[in-house]
Design a protein around this nucleic acid. Sequence first.
DNA 1: GCAGCCCTATTACCT
DNA 2: ACAGGTAATAGGGCTGCG
Length: 795
Amino acid sequence: MPLTRFWILDINYEVKNHQPEIWLWGIDSEGRRVLIIDKSFTTYFYVLPEEGEDAEKLADRIRKVCANLPYITGVEVVDRKYFGKPVKAIKIYCQDPDIMPEYIKVISKVKGISSFLEDDIRYSMRYMIDNNIVPCGWHEVEVEECPNVLNVQVDKVLIAKSTPRYLSEMIDIPKLRILGFSMICYSPKGSPKPEKNPIVIISAITNTGEEKQFIAEKTEDDRKIINDFMNFIRNFDPDIIVGFETNRRDIPYLVARAKANGLSLVIDRAGAEPHTSTYGHVSITGRANVDLFDYADEFPEVKVKTLENIADYLGVMKIEERVLIEDFEYAQYWDDPSKRPELLKFLMDNTRCIMGITEAILDFAIQLSSLVGLPLDHVGTAAVGFRVEWFLIRHAYHMGELVPKKIERAYTPYAGALVLEPNPGIHENIAVLDFKSMYPNIMISYNVSPDTYIPPGEPEIDAFIAPEVNHRFRKEPPGFYREVLAKLIKARDHVREELKRVDRGTIKYRILDARQKAIKVITNATYGYAGWIGARWYIKPVAEAVTAWGRHIIMSTIKAAKNIGLEVIYGDTDSIFVRNDPEKIERLSKIIEEKFGLEIKPDKVYTRVLFTEAKKRYCGLMPDGKLDIVGLEVVRGDWANVAKHIQEKVLEIILKEQTVRRAVDYVRKYIINLREKKIPYRDLIIWKTLTKSPEEYEVKAPHVEAAKSLQKEGWTLTVGDKVGYVITVGSGKLHERAKPYLLASYDEIDIEYYVTNQIVPAALRILSLFGIKENDLLPPKTGKVQTLLEFFGKS
DNA sequence: GCAGCCCTATTACCT
DNA sequence: ACAGGTAATAGGGCTGCG
């Protein structure tokens, strides 16, 4: 039997005559695109007997009922664990995965059933979990070639004659064909609506260097360009299709426009249209549809997650080098023959940005996919909690641990981390000591896990007991979380060890680096998952115990530091700021290592650090002269640039030059410039996120009112969108004077608002530490500028 | 009618 | 639709004020 090695790109299943088939889309070691069909796998679900019910007897009763259910192919009693407790479960095999819900309804009438489990795991996920098949991973399988009667777009269709075997040591990635695209719709007013607004331009770029634009000949006719684009995709036959906001915008729009033109948008490998699937991603069978927008959260420094901002941040294409066209201008540019070429260039540049960002993200996405086991096109749209959960589900399978159902729970808060009151002012030569992976290590050390938790009332002698909250956890056997986290940490250490032996800039380096990042993300999210009420394995005391141990450890560390004469200036969760005394720090580190088995070491040293009166807001000067700004307006996305700029300058002057008067002088001059309208309009925009639809807000807030104005102009706004507004002159509340920045002009701006509510507070946040008051910053509105001497003479 | 106070809603940050 | 802790602003209700 021929043996094939292949890398999995996508997976789906088909059921024909109640006979399921797994379709594995991949690339073989010769670079051929293959479809491997596996007809051998039967799915199943579990039944848990009621308390005191005999499993065998219940199984017999179920068997009787199943006699009338033709696609039930087996009922057996098996040993499993449920939240760590050994249970007898009844495993029921069902040939047709799609008929399961119907059958469960019938079986649920049998007396003695406590619950059904794992019936909510999709057939294709079940197949991968049980057979250790890993998306974006290499596998080996015995196959038999069969004719391509399905007419799918691959080089070979193969029938699996064995179960594919995962080759974990093969970490390379085959040469993938990638197609990026973006498009422009013609809408003279407001957001484009597929019912009436055609697509006028589609840009496409391939990673083989082809660039193509499809331009409508007549504005109202997009039939040809959609058709040409479809043909272009089919000819290039990409493995991965990338875009920006394609899941919720571009692809549904293309599908709708195709339909409006009597076309069917066939861009997959199986002759079907794209369809929306798990977690709201759009599935294109046989290819991976990757929406870069789903990875925007990987760049928290980018506050407004637009394509151009992310590309600018990554150095793909600098904004200064671009002529940006706002969406409300598209129609104008399209209609004007002299401006249309600019629009074409703009869209092509956008597509180049897409290709550039893809390069920065795809390795990580691939590693995340193979680590958590969700297909490449799912993993981006899955929220962090679900990424962790699917990773856990794979491990639960290997431990014989049953997967709990998703249930709705009421939110009840619990105590979290400890934050110290900072000592305001400037401190010299300060080291920041960090615990390495504090929460994951607590979970490992004290075996904190849903399956080791001992509820109150249950006797147990050998247990770890959490401080303050007194939750108990069995010391043995190792818990679910301990096993998983230890594995993750070990895997990451291993990858990082290997990284040291690989040259930077090589493909292998990129893969390994992406791998260790993916492992880190999942490791760090595990505590958060444990405290998430939506988690299948949620047990509040588990999360509560972790933070209790965290508080205990940080408090002990502070005490130990003080004991050896190491002054503690500040601390938050798993870090303490101390005087940089390497000898004492080394001693402290040893004490903590011995006491808790945890590693604490200097993460960075500040030449100088400035604390405000507030927690979580400070600025350190690094030895290389860079500022490390934390929590302050500078790093927040909801302050106008004028405020952020002024605060950064003030911090720079105060920390580097250590002169208050120069900082004050700078602010005063800046205010004068602003009053003379010498500061660009863009720097006055305030951005805020819509966290619900505008009507749902209880109070009238500036950004909500601005959002409503946009809606009136025909723009569609959805939850998560950022609204950019400016404050204009006039009377009344701020929200009455807030206007979307696109609908206002510089002449309307209320400059004094920006002076008193943006610049002054941002500057005073720092300068008030040195006795500066609002009046000291405000130059007189008219007349000549007060000299510094006059100013300091007065104050 | 409005200044001053206090509380709440809202957003975005830190670890 | 991963956690809690925290700061900060604007809105909005209430009180007291000849």
